[in-house]
């Protein structure tokens, strides 16, 4: 695995890294997932909800692929199929050409090491009774990645990679002593400590404030370069997808309505739903050029 030099600003590289000729890492082929709701209290029979309806897409190695959709569009379900938290009812999920539903037992455990997931809600995805060290160390223990005396070192380096510095301060804290942003960093450290090849990030910032989201995005972009990993980035935010993703697919009610390079889709949407989505974005133009024309900490102003 050759490491790319991290970009000084930790960003920008969004289109340059895309290689159209690199092999396909993950592929969904006509994947369908149906959820059956239980019978209701009033005895109405169980309903079926088609979360994914014959969805196909493929992610190339080293790419950030964005899955953009609203709540209930099936975007999270697609991510869960890839990490095998759910099984498709029909269709296939291929990772490096291997059908996931055929992997079992020990092979499954080895496979888990290669594909990791970052969950949406850092308030829910960390065990409240485990310290930061125990949380991040767990994958290392499970996969026997480091000798017991090297574990601390591994955890410390994973924590500093996600910007929890100095890591020693965080090792023995519990989730309830951390802010949302810090928790999400711990969750990211837990999934990246295994050096996975594929990372599914399920709305990793939807529970966080804007300024913290930017911190997390920057960490993800840097990690992606360091690990040379493939990313599936699941989001409801077109803007975030534009900034982070090489290609995106817009998904609605379990079906992909539009797929292609992020910029092309957002600048020239073809599908009416994508157009509607773009039209609904809050109109708010940043006026960067005028920003900070007044700087109270430098030049004068009358104090009142």
């Amino acid at each position: 695995m050759d490491l790319l030099e991290p970009h000084p600003q930790g960003a920008v590289l969004r289109t340059s890294i895309m290689k159209t000729d690199s092999p396909i890492a993950v592929e969904l082929v006509e994947a369908t997932k149906i959820f059956r709701t239980k019978k209701t209290f009033f005895g109405r029979s169980g309903e079926q909800v088609t979360a994914l309806d014959r969805v196909s897409f493929s992610i190339r190695q080293g790419e950030i692929f964005g899955l953009v959709g609203e709540s209930g569009s099936g975007k999270t379900t697609a991510g869960r199929l890839i990490v095998k938290l759910d099984e498709p009812d029909s269709g296939k999920v291929l990772v490096d050409g291997v059908n996931l539903s055929e992997i079992r037992g020990h092979k499954m455990k080895r496979f888990r090491r290669r594909i990791q997931m970052i969950f949406q809600d850092p308030y829910q995805s960390l065990n409240p009774y485990l310290s930061v060290y125990q949380t991040v160390c767990e994958p290392v223990v499970i996969h026997r990645l480091a000798a017991p005396q090297k574990r601390l070192e591994t955890v410390v380096s994973a924590l500093s990679q996600v910007g929890l510095t100095p890591p020693e301060d965080y090792l023995f804290r519990y989730p309830h002593q951390l802010s949302g942003g810090q928790r999400q960093r711990v969750a990211i450290a837990r999934s990246t400590v295994l050096n996975p090849e594929i990372i599914v990030a399920d709305e990793p910032t939807s529970m966080l404030d804007a300024s913290i989201s930017i911190q997390i995005f920057n960490i993800l972009v840097r990690l992606k370069q360091n690990l040379n990993a493939t990313f599936l980035f699941i989001t409801h935010s077109l803007a975030a997808a534009l900034y982070l993703c090489d290609r995106i697919a817009v998904i609605r009610k379990g079906k992909i309505v539009e797929m292609g390079p992020a910029k092309a889709i957002i600048r020239k949407p073809e599908h009416p739903y994508t157009r509607e989505l773009i039209r609904s974005q809050p109109r708010f133009r940043k006026k960067t050029e005028q920003r900070g024309s007044f700087r109270p900490w430098e030049n004068g102003a009358t104090s009142s």
């Binding site: 990490v83 938290l85 888990r112 969950f119 829910q124 409240p128 767990e138 994958p139 499970i142």
Partner: peptide
């Protein structure tokens, strides 16, 4: 709860 699912994704066994 997601933290149990997170443990499954890391490859934790049922006993664990």
């Amino acid at each position: 709860r997601p933290f149990i699912e997170a443990a499954r994704v890391t490859g934790a066994s049922h006993l664990r």
